Amino acid sequence: MPAAFPAPHTPRRTVLRGLGVGAAALAGAGALGACSSREAVEGDAAAASGDGDGAGAGAGFTLTDQRGKKTAFDGPVRRIATAIIPSPSMIAAVDGSYDRLVGINESTLQANKEGIFGTLFPTSRKTATIAGSDFVPNVETIAGLKPDVVIQWGDMGDEVIAPLENAGFKVIGLTYGTQEMMETWIRIFGTLLGKQDRSTEILDWMHDEDAAVRELVAPYAKKKQKVLYLRTASDGWTTATGSDYVTHWTGIAGGVNVAHDVSADAPQVSVEQILAWDPEVILLSAFDEAEPAGVYGNKKLADVRAVRERRVYKVPLGGYRWDPPCCESPLMWRWAAQVLHPELATRNGLRARVKDTFDRLYGYRISAAETDEVLRTKLNTKSAGYAGFRA
């Protein structure tokens, strides 16, 4: 079993009830619930502090968000509404519970209904929605939820954040996209929840995993494989550039993003460009329904090396999608390392690490069948080397 940060404090074991196997759809929940249990984590007494003003649990603190704005709180928050899609899974990981979340994005709710997060935390399937894909908040709905704080994008302009502040809500503005920004989120959530020790444990684990994966792939440093990330667009594909988190985890895994020098954000990618890049590995976004089988069947891509060698893979979906920054990102680093270097399977121990991570982050004992769903073993079954991810 891999080393990891300590489990949440004072756990009590419960058995999930009433969790049927529903349709997997985009998020791929598959055969869920039958063989697993989770720990419902009770609150701990970790100190709450923001900018050095806070003291123990229940004490007030001042927090500076990623806009540089300071907000004062009387103590750890109890009710959180968030319009930001990735934040609920990270809040739940830091808190060891979903209990404080009262409002979420419509896209998050849909993913919760379709994916394993709704099994980890059943109440997440029926949480009120406070914003849609445009992130414009429904102030009336939020007012009815009586949140202690509202979490919103801090870099999308007044349209999404001013209505909240004008209505008198305490608002934390966040930015996203890099490892450093994600780590700042974890610290902020630790402060809001009064669980700084827990957030520090998660960050220490991430740093240890970063070093471990880099060491794992070090023997392959002289030959970095060319990786292309594809996300379905209305008229084709888009990809990730050098400023995207994809480039970060591709590098950790011992590869190179073929689009790292492209300047546009989420640029369109033509068949001609894919042929010119001739990637050795193609990774398909967890945000859409594209599957390796569709790429293998595309005659226009038949001459691409990754297609010829059957090295097209669907990115996993755990408590959150693994492509962008999240608390499960160390699993993405290991998954990508094994995709690029299948011979690492026995040393990587990814399935054991998935089990350990879900237990540590969410207090949930993930089953073998659920692990298969997270790792997309069915979708990736005909891709080279994927037998190494199976039970």
Score class of each variant (00 low, 15 high):
residue 214 R to F: 03
residue 246 V to Y: 02
residue 336 A to R: 00
residue 162 A to I: 05
residue 263 S to G: 12
residue 288 D to R: 02
residue 43 G to W: 12
residue 140 E to W: 15
residue 122 P to M: 10
residue 367 S to W: 07
residue 308 R to G: 05
residue 11 P to C: 07
residue 317 L to C: 09
residue 228 L to G: 03
residue 379 L to K: 03
residue 143 A to N: 10
residue 361 L to Q: 04
residue 278 D to P: 06
residue 150 V to M: 11
residue 368 A to V: 14
residue 287 F to V: 15
residue 358 F to H: 08
residue 168 G to N: 08
residue 221 A to D: 01
residue 311 R to N: 02
residue 132 G to I: 07
residue 159 E to P: 10
residue 91 I to M: 03
residue 324 P to D: 02
residue 135 F to M: 10
residue 353 R to V: 09
residue 231 R to C: 15
residue 357 T to G: 03
residue 55 A to W: 06
residue 225 Q to V: 07
residue 61 F to I: 00
residue 201 E to L: 02
residue 83 A to L: 07
residue 153 W to I: 01
residue 169 F to Y: 07
residue 26 L to K: 15
residue 315 V to G: 01
residue 123 T to W: 01
residue 226 K to R: 15
residue 252 I to F: 02
residue 90 M to F: 09
residue 51 D to R: 09
residue 228 L to E: 06
residue 210 D to T: 09
residue 310 R to W: 13
residue 24 A to F: 07
residue 323 D to Y: 11
residue 156 M to A: 04
residue 17 R to I: 13
residue 63 L to T: 03
residue 200 T to L: 06
residue 208 D to G: 13
residue 111 A to N: 06
residue 297 G to A: 05
residue 369 A to D: 05
residue 341 H to A: 00
residue 179 Q to P: 08
residue 19 L to T: 11
residue 285 S to E: 01
residue 203 L to E: 11
residue 245 Y to T: 13
residue 155 D to I: 10
residue 126 K to E: 08
residue 237 W to C: 06
residue 32 L to I: 13
residue 333 W to L: 13
residue 350 L to Q: 01
residue 40 A to H: 08
residue 100 R to V: 15
residue 315 V to K: 01
residue 322 W to T: 11
residue 387 A to F: 01
residue 217 V to N: 00
residue 25 A to P: 00
residue 228 L to R: 04
residue 199 S to V: 02
residue 58 G to A: 07
residue 366 I to C: 11
residue 315 V to Q: 04
residue 178 T to P: 15
residue 106 E to Q: 14
residue 99 D to N: 03
residue 10 T to H: 15
residue 271 V to P: 00
residue 353 R to Y: 04
residue 175 T to L: 02
residue 279 P to T: 03
residue 354 V to C: 08
residue 25 A to H: 10
residue 159 E to K: 15
residue 283 L to P: 03
residue 253 A to K: 01
residue 298 N to M: 07
residue 121 F to Q: 04
residue 324 P to M: 05
residue 73 F to S: 10
residue 229 Y to G: 12
residue 243 S to L: 06
residue 45 A to F: 14
residue 99 D to A: 10
residue 99 D to W: 02
residue 317 L to H: 07
residue 129 T to G: 08
residue 331 L to M: 13
residue 227 V to S: 07
residue 303 D to S: 15
residue 191 T to I: 00
residue 177 G to N: 05
residue 242 G to E: 01
residue 333 W to M: 14
residue 75 G to V: 05
residue 81 A to V: 13
residue 281 V to L: 01
residue 223 K to R: 14
residue 116 I to F: 08
residue 383 S to C: 09
residue 299 K to D: 00
residue 258 V to G: 05
residue 134 D to R: 15
residue 23 A to R: 12
residue 88 P to T: 12
residue 162 A to W: 11
residue 80 I to D: 00
residue 253 A to E: 00
residue 117 F to A: 11
residue 309 E to V: 04
residue 298 N to Q: 12
residue 363 G to P: 06
residue 186 I to L: 15
residue 194 G to Y: 05
residue 246 V to P: 00
residue 29 A to F: 10
residue 351 R to V: 05
residue 343 E to A: 01
residue 339 V to F: 04
residue 177 G to H: 09
residue 288 D to Y: 03
residue 238 T to H: 08
residue 209 E to S: 14
residue 4 A to F: 05
residue 319 G to V: 07
residue 205 W to Y: 15
residue 185 W to D: 03
residue 262 V to A: 13
residue 66 Q to F: 12
residue 256 V to L: 11
residue 268 Q to C: 00
